[in-house]
Amino acid sequence: MDEIQTYTRGQLALRNGQDKPQIWIAFKGLIYDVTESRLWRGGKHYEHWAGQDLTEELKDAPHSEKVFEKFKVIGKLL
C-alpha cells in the first residue's frame, strides 16, 4: 500500500479552483478532492472557499462530517 502524500497549507491553497483546476479542501488533517462535486463548482460552497482547512467551519454547517465520506482522500495536511 502506498503512503499517503503530504501537502502544506500553501500547496492546498493553490487547489482552490482558480489557481489550479483541482478543488481540494482539508478536514481534520486530511485533504479531500471535491473537484467533481457540483456543490464546489468554481471553488466555493455557500460561504466556504476551497483550498483551505474547513475543520473549524464545520461547526456551523447544517451537515455532519459524514459528508466527507463521499470524497476521495488525496493527502494529509502538514
Rank of each mutant, 00 (worst) to 15 (best):
M1N: 08
M1G: 12
M1W: 13
D2G: 04
E3P: 01
E3T: 12
E3V: 04
I4F: 07
Q5A: 11
T8F: 01
G10C: 00
G10M: 13
G10T: 13
L12N: 04
L12F: 03
A13M: 11
A13I: 10
L14Q: 15
R15M: 11
R15Q: 12
N16R: 02
N16Y: 07
Q18F: 04
Q18W: 03
K20S: 01
Q22P: 01
I25M: 01
A26R: 04
F27T: 00
L30M: 09
Y32H: 05
Y32V: 14
Y32Q: 14
Y32E: 09
D33R: 00
V34S: 03
T35G: 06
T35K: 03
E36M: 11
L39I: 00
W40A: 07
K44D: 03
H45A: 01
H45Q: 13
Y46C: 07
Y46S: 06
E47I: 08
W49A: 11
A50P: 02
G51R: 13
Q52D: 08
L54H: 14
L54F: 08
T55A: 04
E57I: 09
L58P: 07
K59H: 14
D60F: 15
D60I: 10
D60N: 15
A61V: 05
A61R: 05
P62A: 07
P62K: 02
S64C: 07
F71H: 10
K72I: 12
K72L: 11
V73M: 12
I74C: 00
L78C: 12
L78W: 11
